[in-house]
């Protein structure tokens, strides 16, 4: 189908974009890569009266590592740029590994990190990565600038902490310890499809070889990406190994809140979620030792 009529504006600054959204009000939407919004418009599920295109705002784009080794990614940075960027492979290998799982090359050539977070599909990869890394989402809006931690950003299916007229400007990932063990894995029907379930995992070791910090997150297993804290807690203070990973996976599975749909049943998702946690922890450990 074809989208209904709308006004179109292509501002070249954030200030101008904010002024335009304020002027055009309730039914105006920001357009980023268009890879979620335009399909919804073609289906007429979304019928914005105006589109404020963010593609011409250079300030919203780019990848930078600051003096404290934090990784900053502008909201309008395309997922394909993240995939091809050599410094991201070092600055956050987990993010780098997750990105090729997003859709297909043609979609990644347009889709943006900010668009994926704002859209907040519960099966999307990037929301889980920002969550498991404890990244901060920088927002600019009519009330000025604010920063929201990933833990507080995802509120429900396609629902976030973004309020009317607000733009995600940048995502800031905390410093990635060079020795960190990590893995990402997902199960989908075909390459590029949304995951039925996916897991992102990392852990750090202290001087005595015990796990001192850990992160586990799931996609496709709830209304939002989920942090699997029961599994994380099992890992803390223990030495990595198959037994500990199995126990952590069993505990992590109790944090999953899967639903049944045409893609998979809740039982299947829970089962696969547990297997993937175990597999990710094992892969993480084997890769780093």
């Amino acid at each position: 189908m074809k989208p209904p009529k709308f006004d179109y504006f292509a501002p070249d600054s954030v200030e101008r974009a904010l002024a335009l959204i304020a002027e055009h009000g309730d039914h105006a939407r920001f357009l980023a890569g268009g890879q979620s919004l335009v399909p919804m418009m073609n289906f007429r599920v979304a019928t914005p009266s105006a589109l404020i295109d963010l593609n011409g705002i250079a300030d919203l784009r780019g990848i930078r590592i600051d003096d404290e080794h934090r990784l900053h990614i502008g909201a309008m940075t395309r997922t394909r740029e993240i995939e091809m960027d050599a410094q991201i492979a070092r600055a956050n290998p987990l993010l780098h590994a997750a990105v090729p799982n997003i859709a297909h090359m043609q979609i990644r050539n347009r889709g943006t990190i900010g668009g994926s977070l704002a859209h907040a599909d519960p099966a999307a990869e990037l929301p889980a990565i920002v969550l498991v890394c404890g990244a901060a989402i920088q927002i600019v809006g009519p009330g000025g600038r604010r920063s929201v931690g990933a833990m507080d950003f995802f509120e429900g299916i396609f629902e976030t902490a973004l309020r009317d007229g607000e733009i995600i400007s940048e995502i800031v990932f905390p410093t990635w310890p060079a020795a960190r063990s990590w893995a990402f894995d997902e199960i989908s029907r075909r390459e590029g499809d949304f995951a039925m379930v996916g897991i992102a995992a990392w852990f750090d070791l202290d001087a005595s070889g015990k796990i001192s910090a850990s992160g586990l997150a799931a996609i496709g297993a709830g209304d939002t990406p989920l942090r699997l804290s029961s599994g994380e807690q099992i890992l803390i203070g223990r030495s990595p190994g198959a037994d500990v990973f199995a126990r952590a996976a069993e505990a992590a599975a109790t944090d999953l809140q899967p639903a049944s749909d045409i893609h998979a049943s809740a039982e299947y998702r829970r089962e696969v979620g547990e297997v993937l946690v175990q597999r990710c922890l094992q892969t993480a450990w084997e890769r780093s030792s």
């Binding site: 292509a10 268009g34 335009v38 289906f43 090359m105 043609q106």
Partner: peptide, 26 residues
């Protein structure tokens, strides 16, 4: 016309993209 089939793929500034998910004005 919703990004799934790839039949509409064209090359824009060197990159393969879905022409059904981009507006001509862009």
């Amino acid at each position: 016309e919703h990004g799934v089939c790839g039949a509409c793929t064209v090359i824009v500034d060197g990159a393969a993209v879905r022409s059904c998910l981009m507006f001509a004005v862009q």
